[in-house]
Design a protein around this nucleic acid. Structure first.
Lengths: 232, 232
DNA sequence: ATCTGCAATATGTATGCACATAATATTTCT
DNA sequence: AGAAATATTATGTGCATACATATTGCAGAT
């Protein structure tokens, strides 16, 4: 008999190996926890931990009583690190800096207003900034903040601290949404980023809420060529 | 004394509530598992499960002996569902279809060749297809397949089955990478998607390997306005 | 003062057991 | 036959306990 697999990592590795080896093909039902535990020479708890892990990673699908089966499409989930720009820049060994481009109250565009479920006459604080890595444009930030939800924000000195850093530190959110997309560079953004107007920019939008009240909508636009990557 | 929190979900909810309420601020060290278990009236195992879950979700950072602290930056990870196009289309209640645009052997462009670590003279199978939702263009697929790694692919009838569906079902990969980006529509892609040349397209690139051998590189380009979303 | 090794400590994990829960399979009743 | 009640089963979870392991921090040596 094979050596006992007594750690959940070892069990997970073995199960993954069988999936990859096609011992268990996509869609197949695999043995139940009790049987696997017997075969591997460990407790059911350990098998459970391993299978739960693989299910979270998207390799398995589990349902009570119905059993555990190999996922039909191996990876449908990817966890990606949402860049915290300062850290991202500094991780490359570059010097981080940011410049405030605009800060004024105004009526948000329709797209923002409807995303935040705001009435037509509602005014927000509009903040535009540029993030720099070693002095070169790294990302363009376009943000609308609801100062009724976050009154302290109105008096903040944004030249000292980025809006994001302050909000993250001081305003806990209860709900957030993230959207990845592409946009054509408008003239202002193009100038800030130093690219051609109309260039294809990768964008990352984040909307956050505190209970039912919107906190902020922010869109980061990266210069052409920027890629957000992750392993599968 | 408050009601005992005897499920790991309840414990996780309570801890998350304290984080959001700023009882425990970002960077703070929170009580150790034994103390929390005492306070909540449950076993340490249960607290461990809850804290482990919150750490995986990015709310906490844990280190042995050093303890558990509230993450400085609440959410730096987002798990997003990688679209399996057919399912994505059908989930909207639309009819899925795909059309083969090109299928021929050739030398891949430099970018692909270097990503796959291939020698300069190496030829791959180039497949271009269009995914349709109710007859309208949904995504443009540009793919290079290494038929030395996947010989069966060469004889496949791609009008019946999408390349992705076949590969996913038949070729397990051991390593994969994902990159999200933006590109300007080249004339061919623009025509296929029915948008203007130069338009900003959201793209998703996937590279997969079987051990040290590349399987395929594929890039999906979506029409302007497409968004990939997830909750935070 | 600095380095080194050891003790203390918080998290990480394995195990056996019990019971909960969801979903399916079977039987019973009409 | 069809519906409703019931049994069965696989996963989900909680608990007490024990031991493993990574770090920190202190104490003693240099």
């Amino acid at each position: 008999m094979a050596e006992a697999l007594t750690s959940w990592q070892a069990v997970a590795d073995e199960v993954l190996a069988r999936i990859r080896r096609r011992d268990w093909a996509p869609g197949d039902l695999i043995p139940n926890e009790v049987d696997l535990a017997g075969e591997m020479g460990c407790a059911r708890t350990t098998v459970n931990r391993a299978l739960r892990h693989l299910a979270e990673a998207g390799y398995l699908e589990r349902r009570r009583k119905a059993g555990t089966r190999v996922a039909l499409n191996p990876v449908r989930r990817a966890t990606l690190r949402i860049p915290v720009i300062r850290e991202e820049v500094e991780a490359r060994g570059a010097h981080y800096d940011h410049a405030l481009i605009l800060r004024e109250e105004g009526a948000p565009p329709l797209a923002v207003r409807s995303l935040l479920h705001l009435p037509p006459d509602r005014r927000l604080l509009h903040v535009v900034a540029l993030h720099l890595a070693d002095g070169a444009p790294y990302a363009h930030e376009d943000r609308w903040v609801d100062t009724e939800t976050v009154p302290d924000f109105a008096t903040l000195d944004l030249t000292q601290q980025s809006a994001n850093a302050w909000l993250v530190q001081n305003v806990p959110y209860t709900r957030g949404a993230l959207a990845l997309s592409a946009m054509a560079a408008d003239p202002d953004t193009a100038e800030a980023l130093g690219c051609a107007p109309g260039a294809a920019l990768f964008t990352l939008e984040r909307t956050t809420w505190k209970a039912a009240r919107p906190i902020t909508w922010v869109r980061l636009a990266y210069p052409p060529g920027h890629r957000l990557t992750t392993d599968l």
